[in-house]
Simulated scan of single mutants.
Amino acid sequence: MPLNELSQRAATLNARYRHHSATSVLSHALRDPEAGQLALVSSFGAESVVLLHMVAVAKPDTPVIFIDTQMLFTETLIYQQEVSERLGLRDVRVIRASDKVLETTDPTQTLHRRDTDACCALRKTVPLQGALQGFDGWITGRKRFQGVTRAALDFFEVEEGTNRLKVNPLAHWTRQDIRTYMEENRLPKHPLVAQGYPSIGCQPCTSPVAPGDDPRAGRWPGQEKTECGIHVVDGKMVRKGVNA
């Protein structure tokens, strides 16, 4: 689809749902022909259960893509299974880099020590791009409060370099909105949150943070890196929130 046509679709959807709530935007997007076939990409991280619950209520057969980098915390893998079963998600797709590619590129599983960007591309970005083939767009948990690059984030946008849409139902939510939703719906928290992990990625590249510190301070500690590469704006990687 031509970029100008896709941009017009995004503009039409934003105008249509501009004053809708997050749950309404998500529910309508999953059924609106203008949005097309959508998948939810979820890390099953600290805040992921909010969107997972919304999807389970609105359309439980929505494809949910979970990237198993094969370096995740055991707690994340268990949480993914438990949350999927509890919420009744019917189409959870666990994707991974192929064994052949891993054996060729990272046979000793030490690439993350030498080149974290290359490791993220190998284990997350490339497998995700393959998994998204055939979809017209994907649902993310990005929010405006997560940084200046997201201050004007819309519900619908064009994914850079592709012919897909990104849908951001939680764009206008605050941290308190997230906490309130989880409490009101009695949603299970990721077990590592109580251990000081407000942002949870791969085990070798994630550390607990002190109370009051930036939630992302525990991701790739000691490096300037703050992003795995899944979200790109103007050709540059941008900060994500904890719902990667």
Rank of each mutant, 00 (worst) to 15 (best):
A22I: 07
R186W: 00
E47H: 05
P127Q: 00
N243Q: 08
K100N: 12
D214M: 05
L40D: 01
N14A: 06
R179F: 14
L102S: 08
E224Y: 03
H20V: 06
L132V: 00
S7M: 09
N14C: 12
P198L: 01
F145E: 05
P208E: 00
Y197P: 04
R164S: 01
R216H: 02
K100E: 15
V238K: 11
D106A: 09
G222W: 07
I67E: 12
N185C: 04
L30H: 07
E157M: 12
Q109A: 14
R18E: 13
K124D: 00
D117V: 12
T108K: 15
D61C: 06
T76H: 01
R86T: 14
A244T: 06
R186P: 00
C205E: 10
G45S: 01
F135H: 03
D68P: 05
C205Q: 08
D32H: 09
D177I: 13
Q81S: 14
L40R: 02
Q223K: 13
V242H: 07
C119Y: 05
E82A: 09
D117C: 04
R113Y: 03
Q203R: 15
L187K: 03
D32G: 06
N243M: 09
L30C: 09
V126T: 15
Y181R: 08
G241W: 13
K100V: 15
A194C: 06
S27I: 05
S199N: 03
